[in-house]
Design a protein around this nucleic acid. Structure first.
Length: 433
RNA sequence: GUGGACGUAGCUCAGCUGGUAGAGCCCCGGAUUGUGAUUCCGGCCGUCGCGGGUUCGAGUCCCGUCGUCCACCCCA
């Protein structure tokens, strides 16, 4: 026996027992995006390293130390995407999708960051991602937030709250940044180590510090919202008015800063207090300069990302139950001559009822053994085909979890009988998936 | 990247101050002829994360390493 191979650090398997929560999330996601008229978009998980450096920012933690980057045999510099926006913007430009001027899309898939793992923070993790291009006004900001709110609500989650803020235009943010740098420099002796480091790199991040000793200093710092240019202020106020109009609760959080360089004006974040320090479940913002920065026609953009693992953790924590897909029928086959008739019976039933789930006993076994398996499968009914039934052209039907006497049914009438017993509909469900 | 806790059967865990491992669940089989979930009986399962060291002897002590988790950093 050779040594078993362990999974890489920070990556996880989603086991069959956990899949119901994931499928619930995926189903609701598709449903909600469809209800807002967003189209699904699928883009590669690998891109040129340069793409992320240019979009996320050279001096962000993500680019500086968290990317899985490598040089392939053709000497291309490749990176596993650490987030979705950059790739989507690239794809939108590459495919000329902005010729229509406007675009609303979403995607779902794995992201990769080489961080120190923790519950709710993994090296391969998954995000649901929404992006919209070509909308100048705050109406799209409101729609994006409403969409995320609806998604969280339909997932059944409780205890998430919304924070919003505006970072202004790059120009007004630069003015604020200078003010802030001056303020913190004047109080440099009270800064902790992390904040001293951030003072030169990204002083806005100091505002985000969790250090209790810093809170006094931060509270007295100049507010970004006071440095906003008039247009950004108006944009933000309009957004807030729309949120109120739509009945969405929010808090203006003047210290809310996103870590990626490309954000402008609106930023927002949904958080929970149920996941320890990994409290953000969904976050995003506007990135008006990014498309131009990546070589496209200057087009405003906005987007958000939702951490699927974090959502699933919340679903599990809140004990939300999802209907498990289990077989409705288990076909017990005992005897020398029942193999082929059994297959034919199963296929006949599947032909008749596309939505039927039927598990066939494979590998033989005594009646007792097979009934044990039937029970464990979760099936509603066991169908029994033994030599005796096969010879007489009948199938025995036994209810496994409801009061009903065992009965026999001629093979030619079994489809109809099963359809009645399980309440199946011809042609199957529509709207599935 | 920094600090800390933990790591024993598939799962949940027990194993006192060092003497070469246990329970429950799960799984498999049986309780007279072709019928499950209960009950009873029996059975399988571990290089005690990995590698070194101390010792006559280590799951138990020491060092290293890998992994998980917590906080920070950062972020979804």
């Amino acid at each position: 026996m050779s040594k078993i191979i362990e999974p890489l650090r920070g990556v996880h398997d989603v086991l069959p027992a956990q899949i119901a929560a994931w499928q619930h999330l995926e189903r609701i996601t598709r449903q909600v995006f469809a209800s807002y008229g967003y189209e699904e978009f699928r883009v590669p998980v690998i891109e040129q390293t340069q793409l992320f450096k240019r979009s996320i920012g050279d001096f962000t933690d993500i680019v500086e130390k968290e990317m899985f980057s490598f040089v392939d045999q053709g000497e291309d510099h490749i990176t596993l995407r650490p987030e979705a926006t950059a790739g989507i913007v690239r794809a939108v430009i590459s495919n000329g999708l902005l010729r229509d001027g406007r675009l609303r899309v979403w995607c779902m898939g794995p992201m990769f960051r080489r961080e120190r793992p923790q519950a709710g923070r993994y090296r391969q993790f998954h995000q649901v991602d929404a992006e919209a291009f070509g909308f100048e006004g705050p109406d799209i900001d409101a729609e994006m937030i409403l969409l995320s709110a609806r998604l969280l609500k339909l997932l059944g989650l409780r205890g998430v709250s919304l924070k919003v803020n505006s970072l202004g235009t790059p120009a007004s943010r630069a003015v604020y940044r200078d003010k802030l740098t001056a303020y913190f420099t004047a109080h440099a002796e009270s800064l902790d180590e992390d904040s001293k480091r951030r003072l030169t790199g990204n002083p806005l991040r100091i505002l985000d510090s969790k250090n209790p000793d810093m809170q006094r200093l931060i509270a007295a710092a100049p507010l970004l919202i006071e440095s906003l240019d008039a247009e950004s202020r108006e944009h933000f106020e309009s957004l807030c008015a729309q949120l109120r109009g739509a009945g969405v609760e929010y808090h203006v959080e003047p210290h809310l800063v996103r870590g990626l360089d490309y954000y402008t004006r609106t930023v927002f974040e949904w958080t929970t207090d149920q996941l320890g320090s990994q409290s953000t479940v969904c976050a995003g913002g506007r990135y008006d300069g990014l498309v131009a920065q990546l070589g496209g026609v200057d087009t405003p953009g906005i987007g958000w990302a939702m951490g699927q693992e974090r959502i699933v953790m919340l679903l599990e924590k809140q004990n939300l139950e999802f209907s498990k897909r289990r077989p409705q029928l288990y076909l017990v086959l005992v005897g020398e001559q029942t193999g082929i008739p059994g297959l034919q019976l199963a296929e006949q039933l599947r032909d008749a009822w596309p939505d039927l789930s039927l598990q066939i006993n494979l590998g033989g076994g005594s009646f007792k053994t097979q009934f044990k398996r039937a029970d464990k499968s979760g099936a509603e009914f066991a169908l029994v085909l033994g030599d005796d039934e096969a010879a007489r052209g009948v199938v025995a039907v036994k209810a496994l979890r409801r009061e009903m006497a065992q009965e026999e049914c001629p093979v030619e009438r079994i489809s109809e009988r099963i359809g009645n017993l399980l309440g199946l509909k011809k042609g199957g469900e529509r709207n599935h998936g």
